Simulated assay, not measured.
Amino acid sequence: MPGQKPDQKGQPPVARAALFGLCPRCGAQTLFDGPVKFASHCRVCALDYSTYNVGDGPAAFLTLIIGALLIVAALTLDAVARPPFWVHILLWVPLTAAAVVYGLRVGKAALLAIEHQRQAAEGRKLDGPHD
Score class of each variant (00 low, 15 high):
K9Q: 15
G10F: 07
G10S: 09
G10K: 04
Q11C: 13
Q11E: 11
P12S: 08
P13G: 13
A15M: 13
R16T: 10
L19H: 02
F20Y: 13
G21D: 01
L22Q: 01
L22H: 00
C23K: 00
C23N: 00
P24D: 04
R25S: 15
R25C: 05
G27P: 00
Q29R: 15
Q29P: 07
Q29M: 10
T30D: 11
T30P: 01
F32L: 07
F32A: 07
G34C: 05
P35T: 08
V44W: 06
V44R: 12
L47G: 00
D48S: 09
D48C: 05
D48R: 04
Y49G: 02
S50V: 05
Y52P: 01
N53R: 15
N53F: 12
V54M: 04
G55D: 08
G57Q: 07
P58D: 04
P58T: 04
A59N: 03
F61K: 09
L62K: 02
T63I: 08
I65F: 13
I66Y: 00
I66Q: 00
A68C: 09
L70G: 00
D78K: 04
P84M: 06
F85H: 08
V87I: 15
I89C: 11
W92Q: 06
P94Y: 07
L95G: 08
T96Q: 09
V100S: 11
V101W: 10
V101P: 04
R105W: 09
A109E: 07
L112I: 11
I114K: 13
E115H: 14
